[in-house]
């Protein structure tokens, strides 16, 4: 695993020096939360089983941050690195493909985690965010959800040819997923039709699991979500490894 730590540090430097990634992962979800928070507040309501709007939204927005990584950040940056020949140059060294893959996974996991912590902190500070789950379980669930979307990201990154295509595909998957999964609008407010469509959208299972664990549900209540997410990770992960291209 020669070069692993340097690669991760390098990705962090590039990330902090480029506006788009920084904005979408760290700032955009917080802005959304503040806008909706200022409209709806966080008063407990029967509609949300005694919780407030922010309490329900924060775990759902975690799903949004996870989806940004998998659907946008990874495909766009990997595809444009490939398109520009940055990966071609890396390949001319003894660097192993597994090493760079692992570096990317660790890096994107860490920034997704950072974005999530900032979001949670914002909810706590401004709206007295309520949490009824177990921190360890939430972290474990978060890791599973992130892994499944990271593998999806690498699969997309291997399919698309250019950064621009990655952008278009990422956006056209991201926004519908956001609305149909309940990541943006609490699922309580979604119609049955939309909920049924949501069953075919991977992000729905992320939102279900994160919200469930947030409010203290047992793992056993989410067997189906977990199965879908693990299956996604395995299937897409193996496809990604198989079809990964340096150029």
């Amino acid at each position: 695993m020669k070069g692993l730590s340097k690669l991760i540090i390098t990705e962090f430097k590039r990330f902090t020096r480029e506006f788009e990634g920084l904005f979408f992962t760290l700032v955009f979800p917080v802005i959304l939360l503040l806008i909706f928070g200022s409209i709806y507040g966080n008063k407990p309501s029967d509609y949300f089983n005694g919780f407030g709007f922010i309490d329900v939204s924060v775990p759902a927005y975690l799903g949004m941050i996870i989806a940004i990584g998998g659907l946008m950040s990874i495909p766009i940056s990997v595809a444009s690195d490939r398109e520009k020949g940055i990966l071609h140059r890396l390949r001319a060294t003894p660097l192993r493909p597994q090493t760079i893959m692992l570096a990317w996974i660790i890096f994107y996991f860490l920034i997704t985690l950072a974005g999530s912590l900032i979001l949670v902190a914002t909810g706590k500070i401004f709206y007295g965010l309520r949490f009824q789950g177990n921190v360890f379980n939430i972290f474990l669930g978060f890791t599973l959800c992130t892994t499944s979307f990271l593998t999806l990201g690498f699969m997309l990154a291997s399919i698309v040819r250019s950064g621009r295509t990655a952008n278009v595909i990422g956006m056209s998957l991201f926004f519908p997923m956001l609305f149909f999964s309940g990541a943006m609008i609490p699922s309580q407010s979604l119609s049955t039709v939309i909920k049924n469509i949501g069953k075919f959208i991977p992000l729905t299972y992320v939102v279900n699991l994160m919200q469930g664990l947030w409010f203290g549900n047992a793992w056993s209540a989410h067997r189906f979500d977990i199965t879908v997410l693990i299956a996604m990770s395995i299937v897409m992960g193996s496809i990604a490894v198989k079809i990964f291209k340096w150029e």
């Binding site: 070069g3 340097k6 590039r14 020949g85 071609h88 001319a92 060294t93």
Partner: peptide, 23 residues
């Protein structure tokens, strides 16, 4: 290589340091 590039927002020393770590 003819058709290759390096990350735009990396400094010269950072690039050399990164590549050195592969060998």
């Amino acid at each position: 290589l003819q058709e290759s590039s390096l990350p735009a927002r990396l400094k010269v020393w950072e690039i050399i340091d990164l590549y050195a770590s592969f060998y």
